[in-house]
């Protein structure tokens, strides 16, 4: 349990790098998957899940207010299901996918909440300009990290439980389909890489 919570917390902190802090892109799914996989005992699954998730969201660029699918949450929760709940990797990938496409709605809500901070920040700035700015700047990442942690830890556990039940009770053809579909993902990814890097898109 402790390891699971530490894993989720590490994933939540790494996710902050995707938008809110630094953006060194150590939060890229393939890197997060490799790092957490190496630290928690399944390096190859971490690399694979991260790589597949990253390849599939290459088309989604975080421009303006667009919130792409949360590929890091996808990777972290899938890896959590694989390592801590024993979910087969293909099923974990699609379980993580559900969480990854659900989180952007929550992200948008959090951004709307922070819109309400602007007037309060302006009022506080008149009294204590530096302190007011620093205060809201600290609250932003703290709020995000908390949301990531709760979503990953609860979501991975709930979805993982459901996925395990699906693995146990689903017909064989569904299991076969999930496995084959999982191995088809890199081919979509290669196509996406070629399309994204086409010089004609400049």
């Amino acid at each position: 349990m402790i390891s699971y919570l530490v894993f989720c917390a590490a994933g939540a902190l790494l996710k902050l790098d995707s938008t809110y802090i630094a953006q060194f892109l150590i939060s890229r799914p393939v890197f997060v998957g490799a790092l957490l996989g190496m630290l928690f005992g399944d390096f190859c699954a971490g690399v694979q899940l991260g790589l597949f998730a990253e390849m599939l969201v290459l088309d989604h660029v975080p421009v303006g207010g667009h919130v792409p699918p949360a590929s890091i949450i996808w990777t972290v929760s899938a890896l959590a299901m694989k390592i801590f709940m024993g979910v087969p990797v293909a099923w974990a990938f699609f379980g993580g996918f559900l969480l990854g496409i659900s989180f952007p709605r929550i992200e948008e809500k959090l951004r709307h909440v922070r819109s309400g901070w602007n007037e309060r920040a302006e009022a506080e700035v008149m009294e204590n300009p530096e302190g007011a700015v620093v205060k809201w700047m600290l609250l932003g990442p703290a709020m995000q990290a908390g949301a990531y942690f709760v979503f990953i830890s609860l979501g991975a556990w709930l979805v993982g439980t459901g996925v395990l039940a699906a693995v146990k009770y689903s017909p064989v053809f569904v299991a076969s389909g999930v496995t084959v579909a999982y191995w088809a993902v890199p081919w979509i990814g290669f196509s996406s890489l070629i399309g994204n890097l086409s010089p004609r898109r400049v």
Partner: peptide, 13 residues
Amino acid sequence: SLFLQAAWNYGRM
């Protein structure tokens, strides 16, 4: 500047 987006919001980004 590494924390430019720490409090990103829809109102004033």
